[in-house]
């Protein structure tokens, strides 16, 4: 019995379906129950949260969590499905410290809100950047430029005349 089936056995009401995702056990879970399910996953000795991915499917968002257990040498993948208008899910920073920057990156590039995150700000792009670039409806036509302010802060604008040599 793999980790996903074990999860379904212990929390049958939270797990929607189980399967395999590229040789890794996958469990699709309800987004409201992410915290109790994640607590159970941590009890099952999955001590590392490797990566958090956000995907835009245009009608929905999916957030995918990849776990790894160093003792059991096993992988486990959790997936939650969020509605497209206001994608939000509970933060896992209380369980894995490493979720902090992974969730900030997912917020930065895909725009998913992680409620309960201690510092949900952009991590790669500067503050003030318009839009989330990995969304399908991101505006690729308006180019945004970054300049440095007097205090060393980043200033984002669509006007590149301060930066570019030719107009």
């Amino acid at each position: 019995m793999n980790g996903a089936e074990e999860l379904k056995q212990s929390l049958p009401s939270s797990v929607i379906s189980t399967g395999m995702q590229i040789n890794k056990p996958l469990a699709v879970i309800k987004k409201e129950d992410i915290l109790p399910v994640a607590s159970k996953v941590k009890e099952m000795d999955f001590d590392q949260l490797s990566v958090i991915t956000g995907i835009d499917y245009q009608d929905r968002f999916e957030v995918i969590y990849n776990f790894f257990s160093y003792r059991k040498k096993e992988n486990l993948v959790l997936k939650v499905i969020l509605d497209h208008d206001s994608p939000a899910v509970d933060s896992l920073t209380s369980l894995w410290k490493g979720a902090d920057w992974l969730e900030r990156e997912t917020y930065d590039l895909v725009g998913i809100k992680f409620t309960g995150h201690p510092n949900l700000t952009r991590i790669l792009l500067p503050e003030g950047w318009q839009g989330h670039p990995l969304r399908k409806d991101y505006d690729m036509d308006t180019e945004q430029f970054v300049t440095i302010g007097e205090d060393g802060e980043d200033i984002v604008s669509t006007d590149g005349s301060k930066l570019l040599r030719r107009k």
């Binding site: 792009l125 670039p133 690729m140 930066l163 570019l164 040599r165 030719r166």
Partner: peptide
């Protein structure tokens, strides 16, 4: 070249 985050050539800003 088609990225949102990369300058299309450094000669856009310095000679």
């Amino acid at each position: 070249h088609e990225s949102y985050a990369v300058l299309k050539g450094v000669d856009n800003i310095i000679p």
